[in-house]
């Protein structure tokens, strides 16, 4: 059982894979961290010594923004756009795609599940 960056407890997997379970750490950063801590990439989490776990934890705490802090920063950025009232903010507010994607079709990630239009009947 390894607790790193708060609540994350990935275990049977190789360390670089397990680290990607942390919000804000992807494959690239995970390998970076392994390198900085001098831990071989093949090492599995349950094979880590206590000392190594501490090293990984400290490396992340000091050098990376993860989990809650990261989420908060992202939310703040979005809020800034919304308060500004610019085009980007408006798109965020309306829950529509922000980066110029089409909305005629698709865009379901932002728009959520398709809603039927009342009164539209088959010919």
């Amino acid at each position: 059982m390894a607790r790193i960056a708060g609540i994350n407890i990935p275990t049977q997997k190789r360390l670089p894979i397990a680290l990607t379970y942390i919000h804000g750490i992807g494959p690239t950063k995970a390998e970076e961290i392994c390198e900085q801590c001098g831990i071989p990439l093949e090492r599995r989490v349950h094979e880590l010594t206590d000392d190594e776990v501490i090293r990984v934890r400290e490396t992340i705490d000091q050098n990376y923004q993860v989990e809650g802090d990261l989420r908060r920063e992202v939310a703040m950025n979005i809020k800034r756009y919304m308060d500004l009232g610019s085009y980007r903010g408006v798109r965020h507010r309306k829950g529509l795609p922000v980066n110029g994607q089409r909305t005629h079709t698709n865009a379901r990630t932002r728009k959520g599940k398709a809603r039927p239009i009342a009164g539209k009947k088959k010919a």
Partner: peptide, 18 residues
Amino acid sequence: ENMVGQKFGEFSPTRSYF
């Protein structure tokens, strides 16, 4: 001040209804 870093176009919508 807080507009710094945005693009000018973001403040000049090209479609009308708001």
